[in-house]
Design a binder for these strands. Structure first.
Lengths: 205, 205
DNA sequence: GTCTATAGGAGGATAGAC
DNA sequence: GTCTATCCTCCTATAGAC
C-alpha cells in the first residue's frame, strides 16, 4: 500500500496538470481570437470538453483563467530569452524577441487583454507568478536596451522605458492583423515589415 | 402662423442637433475612457442627463452610438487635413496628422474600439458617413505617402498600405497611455517620443 | 472533480403613459 | 421625444447530487 500510494498521487497530479494545460491552451487561443470580454466561460468549457462548473474547480474566476494564460505566455517568453545565443549582440537579441512575439500574435497564440479592464488588472497585479515573470523579462530586456544604447546601436536619446514599452506594444500591434486581413503578404513578410518600421522607422535612412 | 412655423421647426431641429451633439460628446469621452465593451448605455444616458429610452430615440443601438462618435472624429480629421498649410511638405503633413491624433488620444478624445467585435464592425461598415470619411482620409494620406516616397523622404521599400496602417495605429498606441501612467513625461514629450520612434525608429541613425 | 441545473445580476432594448 | 418601469437575453458563478 505504502509503495503504491506515491505513484497513484503522482499520476493523479499529472492528470490534473494535463487538464489544466488543456484549459490554458484553450483560453490562450480564445483570448487571442476574441479578446477577454468577448470570450465566455461557456466557450472555454465547451472547447476543453468539460462542464463549466468543473472549470471553476480549477480556476476561481474568468480573470484567473486569463491570468493563467498570461503566466503561460510569460514562461514561454522567459524560456525564449534564456535560449537566445549568448554571442548575439543585444540589439539582435531585442530584434529576435520582437520577431518572436509578432510570430506568436500572427499564429493566434498571443492573448489579447484590454489594458482598461480594472478587475482583470487587479487579478493580474495580484498574481505573483505573472508579476515575477513580467519583472524578470523587463529586467532582461531593460539591460539589453541599455547595453545597446551604450554600444551605440540603439538611439541614445530615447528613454529605456519608452523603448521597452514600444517593444512590448509590438505584441498587440493592430498593424499585424490589418496586414494579415489584407492578404497581400505572408506572415514572414508582415513580420519583416513591422520589424523594419519599428527599428528603422518610416523615414528614409 | 405661416411665418412662425419655419422658425419653430428650425429651432426644434437645432435643439435636436444640440442634444445629439451632447450625446456624441459623452459617447466619445466614455469610449476613450473605457472602450466599447465596458461602456454601458446607462452610463451614457446618465452622463448626458436623459433617460436611456430617450437615447434610443436618437440612436437605434449601442453600436450606432459608437459609429456616431467615429463619424464625429472622422469629420474632425477631415477638417484638420483640410486646414493643413498647403506649402508644407507631404512628410511634414503626415507628421502633423499623427501628432494631432496622438494629442486627441492623450486628451481622452479618441474613441477606442475593439478591432474584433463583429457586430460593431458590421455597423461601422454599413455607416455611409463613416465609410466615406474613412475613404477620403485614407485617399489623402495615401497620396501624401506616395508623394513623400517619390520625394525620397519616406522609405521607398515600405508598401504605402503598411505605412498608412502604421500611421493609423498611432491613434490607439498603448505606449501613449503607458508613458502617461508612468507620469515621468508631459503630454508634449510623450508625443515627441512616439513620433520620433514612429518616423525615425528605435535604432541609431 | 465531474456533472446538471440554477441562482443572481448586469445590461441592451422596449412598452406605454404623458 | 421624454419619462418610468419592465422585459429578456446573456453570462458569471455556485449548489448539490454522484
Amino acid at each position: 500500500m505504502a509503495s503504491t500510494t506515491p505513484i497513484k498521487v503522482s499520476f493523479k497530479a499529472q492528470m490534473l496538470l494535463a487538464r489544466e494545460d488543456a484549459i490554458i491552451k484553450s483560453v490562450n487561443r480564445l483570448l487571442a481570437e476574441k479578446g477577454f470580454e468577448a470570450m465566455t466561460v461557456d466557450e472555454v468549457a465547451a472547447d476543453v470538453g468539460i462542464a463549466k462548473a468543473s472549470l471553476y474547480k480549477h480556476f476561481p474566476s474568468k480573470e484567473d483563467l486569463a491570468a493563467a494564460a498570461m503566466v503561460s505566455v510569460m514562461r514561454r517568453a522567459q524560456a525564449y530569452l534564456e535560449a537566445l545565443p549568448a554571442d548575439s549582440s543585444c540589439m539582435d537579441k531585442l530584434r529576435d524577441v520582437v520577431q518572436w512575439t509578432m510570430g506568436l500574435k500572427l499564429a493566434g497564440e498571443m492573448p489579447s487583454l484590454p489594458s482598461q479592464n480594472s478587475s482583470l488588472r487587479a487579478t493580474l497585479m495580484g498574481n505573483k507568478d505573472y508579476m515575477d515573470g513580467l519583472m524578470e523579462v523587463s529586467d532582461r530586456l531593460g539591460a539589453w536596451i541599455e547595453a545597446a544604447q551604450a554600444q551605440g546601436s540603439l538611439n541614445r536619446k530615447l528613454p529605456p522605458i519608452a523603448v521597452l514599452y514600444t517593444l512590448y506594444a509590438r505584441a498587440c500591434d493592430p498593424v499585424l492583423e490589418f496586414l494579415k486581413i489584407g492578404d497581400l503578404y505572408s506572415n514572414e513578410e508582415i513580420i519583416a515589415l513591422v520589424l523594419s518600421t519599428c527599428f528603422e522607422g518610416l523615414a528614409t535612412r
